[in-house]
Simulated assay, not measured.
Amino acid sequence: MLSLRELSITRGQGAAGHAVHLPRLELATGEVMAVVGPSGCGKSTLLEAIGLLLTPTALERFTLGSERTDLTALLQARNERALAEIRSRDLGFLLQSGGLLPFLSVRDNIALPRRLLGMPIHSERVAHACDVLGLEPLLDKRPGALSIGERQRTAFVRAMAHEPRLLLADEPTAALDPQAGERLFGLIVSLVQELQMAALVVSHDLALVTHFQLPRLAATLTPGGCRFAPDT
């Protein structure tokens, strides 16, 4: 589903610069991989680069999907129109901030990605996710009336509502209690397998990562930056 070679991204300049390097990553259809490492090492930066939000400083190969769509040339040419289309269709983002639109109800926030892509608004999988995460009673409320945990659960359903190829989740359980966090993690794993997606999940909760037996993409600090590699 996802294949990367020699991805590097640098934030800041000079002594304040922080370089993130990913030599190799292979992510199969139906696989959920946890991204782990100390705070500030560059986990979110890595996710944003893979999510086509940042232009790499170096890149050898980047393919996505079963047909191995090559994104390398698009990134190197900074073809923003084509990259934006891929982001909206093939990627699902779950950010730490949630990113919900405050003037839309929970129902309309969740439906927005499907509406923008011309997909039918109703989805049995979306309805199932809302049921498992206890969102049914909240569908007509706006984000401002929700708790932090409720907003995060809503943001997850919105991120997967259009059934993207790749889900990128940044600390999805940070605002949740242990029981709710386990339910959300379990739903991520089951839906990724059911929808034949793939997912990268940044998480500080090593107990959950271990409980669900997720493979890990682990950070190693280097002079001036960080290197990520599968944890064997």
Score class of each variant (00 low, 15 high):
181 G>T: 09
131 D>R: 05
121 I>G: 05
138 L>S: 02
130 C>E: 15
119 M>T: 08
130 C>T: 00
187 L>I: 07
147 S>P: 06
140 D>H: 12
122 H>I: 06
171 E>W: 08
171 E>R: 03
150 E>G: 09
176 L>I: 02
150 E>C: 05
118 G>E: 08
161 A>C: 10
176 L>K: 12
188 I>K: 06
123 S>P: 00
145 A>M: 14
150 E>I: 07
166 L>A: 05
138 L>G: 00
141 K>D: 01
156 F>K: 01
177 D>S: 02
142 R>D: 00
119 M>H: 14
129 A>C: 14
155 A>I: 10
129 A>K: 05
166 L>I: 11
145 A>L: 14
129 A>N: 06
153 R>D: 11
122 H>K: 13
120 P>I: 03
136 E>M: 14
166 L>R: 04
153 R>T: 04
162 H>R: 04
124 E>P: 13
177 D>H: 04
158 R>I: 11
154 T>Q: 03
137 P>G: 09
154 T>K: 03
137 P>Q: 11
129 A>F: 03
178 P>D: 02
119 M>V: 04
120 P>N: 06
147 S>H: 14
144 G>R: 02
143 P>D: 03
162 H>W: 09
146 L>Q: 12
158 R>D: 15
131 D>H: 12
146 L>M: 10
118 G>F: 04
169 A>E: 11
182 E>T: 15
141 K>Y: 10
158 R>G: 13
174 A>R: 09
149 G>C: 06
187 L>K: 03
162 H>I: 05
184 L>W: 07
177 D>K: 02
142 R>K: 14
175 A>S: 15
186 G>L: 11
126 V>K: 14
125 R>P: 04
170 D>S: 02
176 L>P: 07
158 R>K: 13
187 L>H: 07
139 L>C: 05
145 A>N: 07
170 D>Y: 04
161 A>T: 09
133 L>G: 05
127 A>M: 10
162 H>M: 05
185 F>V: 13
133 L>R: 01
